[in-house]
Computed example of a mutant assay.
Amino acid sequence: MAFRIHKILNNNAVVVLDEGKEKIVMGPGIAFQKRKNDLIPPGRIEKIFVMEEENEKFQQLLRTLPEEHIDIAEEIISYAEGKLQAPLSDHIHIALTDHLSFAIERLKQGYRIQNKLLNEIKVLYKAEYEIGLWAKQLIKERLGIEIPDDEAAHIALHIHTAKLDAASMNKTMRETTLIHELVDLIQTELGILIDKESISYQRLLTHLRFALSRIENGEPIHSMDEEMLALIQTKYAKEWACTQKAATYAEKEYGIRFPEEELAYIVLHIQRLRKR
């Protein structure tokens, strides 16, 4: 189906009217040497967007951001959908494009990009982080700019939160930050340095993530008999005291209450870490 151009946003994006509704149509060079009311050949169209709530914001980004940044963001999104074998929320076209362009400009100006949640993101959102590393290589090839792994992790979070069944960016950041802070607290209290590449660390993070999910959704906790619970509290008294401090922190700062059984399982994970 051929569309007639209603508004040109940039060389690769135009607005068309389809049954009175504005749609954003994208494709390489789709608006090159075109004017309003010209027809777009269907073979040139790669993507069509209907954004009910954020249509104006997306149009503004397409008009104002460098086209090469927009093209890279769209390529990352397409690659992510292919790797995850699932569609992403339309909002990612705004959120990732805006974020990526800002990050690229900061790097060009010599700013450092840091992400204190890098280690947690690498473990908890492994598939998305690998997409972030792919994006890192793409940006280097296209723009000659080396983005740090910290930025690859930012990209990973945008992709994760755009999955249709995922929590919002704020909620994901809050949960990942809490996990980061709990691991820091464990290290400080026990005077240990956790190997962030170890399987034990990865298991601890994964357990904490699912524990938070179970608590938030009111799901049953893995049961533990009283005798086993008492044994853990006695045998690993130092680790038990540490998890209680962590639980107090989570409740005070985040309003999240860990049941005793959950703390006992965390103790076992900590014990494995200390053995290393």
Results as ranks from 00 to 15, higher is better:
1 M>E: 09
3 F>E: 05
5 I>R: 02
6 H>Q: 11
7 K>Q: 11
7 K>S: 10
10 N>W: 09
10 N>P: 10
11 N>S: 14
13 A>L: 05
14 V>K: 03
14 V>L: 13
15 V>Y: 09
15 V>D: 08
18 D>A: 10
22 E>L: 14
22 E>G: 01
23 K>S: 11
24 I>H: 08
29 G>K: 08
32 F>Y: 12
32 F>E: 07
36 K>L: 06
40 I>R: 00
40 I>C: 00
40 I>W: 03
42 P>L: 06
44 R>C: 04
45 I>M: 07
47 K>W: 08
47 K>E: 15
48 I>S: 12
50 V>G: 12
52 E>A: 10
53 E>S: 13
55 N>G: 15
55 N>P: 00
57 K>L: 15
57 K>H: 14
61 L>M: 11
66 P>M: 11
68 E>Y: 11
74 E>A: 01
75 E>W: 02
76 I>V: 09
77 I>W: 03
83 K>Y: 10
84 L>P: 07
84 L>I: 13
86 A>E: 15
89 S>K: 15
90 D>H: 13
95 A>K: 04
95 A>Q: 10
97 T>G: 03
98 D>H: 10
101 S>G: 12
105 E>M: 06
106 R>D: 05
106 R>Y: 00
107 L>H: 01
108 K>E: 09
110 G>V: 09
113 I>Y: 02
118 L>P: 09
119 N>M: 09
123 V>S: 11
123 V>F: 03
124 L>H: 01
127 A>L: 08
127 A>I: 07
131 I>M: 06
135 A>G: 09
135 A>K: 03
138 L>F: 06
138 L>V: 04
140 K>F: 15
140 K>D: 13
140 K>A: 10
143 L>C: 06
148 P>C: 09
152 A>R: 04
153 A>Y: 05
154 H>T: 06
154 H>S: 07
157 L>C: 02
157 L>S: 05
159 I>E: 05
160 H>P: 02
162 A>D: 12
163 K>W: 07
165 D>Y: 11
172 T>C: 03
174 R>T: 13
175 E>N: 13
176 T>W: 00
177 T>G: 01
178 L>K: 02
186 I>N: 04
186 I>S: 05
188 T>K: 13
189 E>D: 04
191 G>I: 03
191 G>N: 01
196 K>L: 07
197 E>H: 08
199 I>Q: 06
200 S>P: 00
201 Y>N: 02
202 Q>L: 01
204 L>N: 05
206 T>Q: 08
210 F>D: 14
220 P>W: 08
222 H>Y: 10
222 H>A: 07
224 M>V: 12
225 D>K: 06
225 D>E: 08
227 E>D: 08
229 L>G: 05
229 L>M: 14
231 L>S: 12
233 Q>W: 01
235 K>R: 15
235 K>A: 15
235 K>V: 15
237 A>C: 06
240 W>Y: 14
241 A>V: 01
244 Q>R: 11
246 A>P: 02
247 A>Y: 14
249 Y>I: 14
250 A>K: 08
250 A>P: 03
251 E>T: 05
251 E>R: 15
251 E>S: 14
251 E>F: 14
252 K>Q: 14
257 R>S: 11
258 F>G: 05
261 E>D: 12
262 E>G: 04
263 L>A: 01
263 L>W: 04
268 L>Q: 04
270 I>F: 01
271 Q>L: 03
271 Q>K: 07
273 L>N: 05
274 R>F: 02
274 R>Q: 10
275 K>P: 00
